[in-house]
Design a binder for these strands. Structure first.
Lengths: 109, 109
DNA sequence: TCGTATAATTGCAATATTGCGATATATAAG
DNA sequence: CTTATATATCGCAATATTGCAATTATACGA
């Protein structure tokens, strides 16, 4: 009791939920927006950009990397992070499809 | 230490994160999909539809209502739930805008 | 090799979420 | 008023997330 019962739901439902979970933190939203904005790859400028400790930023980067939203390549002593366009589009499509489920205008309540 | 530092981020970033958090559970995705599918309003059929206890379903419905994604009106002894089209569109637009941040094809990494 | 700079990992404390049994509340029927 | 049905709330236990200091890798230059 306390853990999500993923086995009760379809793969698609768990997928959407997991993607949403990856976006369910303002720091991760901020990181993604920053990466989209400055197209160039940056390393730990994020630590200064956001006001969080290096360990915390690293944690969030790890989670974003785990779901494939970003990728990082070693660039000397620092690391070059950027959006993974492929996964980005997958996310976009999944949410599009989810929200496209046409909601009838005539609300019944 | 342990609570999200919302004050470090913009309102928009917190908004997106909160919306994502509302979608960050397969049970809530399943509830929304079910409500979209059967346009009519249903009550606690959800308890049978998903395999969760009544108290748990009620909890999830409460969260969805809290963010405005669904609305419920009393219908005799049961309650009629349905999508709130207005908020639904707002969510859709926010995510659209977020993902529309054009990701340059030429990945730099 | 040694020191420096950057990022990842570890270990911990605080807080949040999930799930459910038990109980409370509300409405309709009798 | 009492009963039955449907939903909400409370209180608890289990698990997950967030944040950070301290430590540990890793890569580069002197």
């Amino acid at each position: 009791m306390g853990a999500t019962k993923t086995d009760l739901f379809t793969k698609q439902q768990n997928d959407i939920a997991n993607m949403a979970k990856a976006l369910a933190h303002p720091a991760r939203i901020a990181i993604l927006q920053h990466l989209v904005k400055i197209n160039a790859c940056i390393g730990g400028d994020l630590v200064e950009e956001l006001g969080l400790a290096q360990a915390t930023i690293s944690q969030h980067l790890k989670e974003l990397k785990a779901v494939g939203l970003i990728q990082g390549t070693v660039e000397g002593t620092s690391i070059c992070y950027c959006i993974n366009p492929k996964t980005w589009m997958q996310y976009r499509n999944l949410f599009d499809k989810f929200f496209d489920s046409s909601v009838s205008e005539g609300s019944c309540c």
